[in-house]
Amino acid sequence: MLKEVFRKPTKWPIMKTLILKDIDDLIYGSLGIIIFISFFIGGVVAIQTALNIDSPLIPKYLVGFTTRQSVILEFAPTFCSIIMAGKVGSYITSSIGTMRVTEQIDALEVMGVNSLNYLVFPKIIALLLYPFVIAISMYLGILGGWLAAVMGEYTTSADFIKGLQLDFKPFHVLYAFAKTMAFAFILATIPSFYGYYMKGGALEVGKASTTSFVWTSVVIIIVNYLLTQMLLG
């Protein structure tokens, strides 16, 4: 499938329109849910950390430190990608699957259009912007943690910020974005595969979306483990 995706490209003016549409659908359309979840999960991480370290021997700035590490290393890149597998992955599988069921993909092929390039390539390119979504998620997760910690009086703003700056390793951000790029590719290709090669009718479109979500999530979790072992282990 991948070989065909990159073969015989569609005319650039048409491809540009498709890429912009997919950026709108896949990236811009996902910002709302990512902003909402990141902000509140960041808050919950801060509160949970604060409640579990009420010993006077453990400094309060650890709330900020733990929030930063949790959000940057795992929550933003991995947890958000699982959410995206549900939102974006299902959308990709069902939209391509519906095109398959209604013979729109056959129509493209009969016209001489490389349907895999036409349908999948713009999604891969659009999801190159996925790291920006994750950057927003990281920022808002930490902001949510800071607000929850300070407003809930679990720690002071100064302590939280001290924790945020404590033992900061820029490589961790690089690691998070490396994972994000791998997840972006997975999010574009696995759901496309399940949509493109599905057979049957409307019921099968629903089943394909579910299967696509399960396998996208499984592959993300496995790749997450492998990349973590390779880059941090």
Partner: peptide
Amino acid sequence: RQEMGMVFQGSA
């Protein structure tokens, strides 16, 4: 295939 036109059963 660019010399072909196709009308599908469900219009597509």
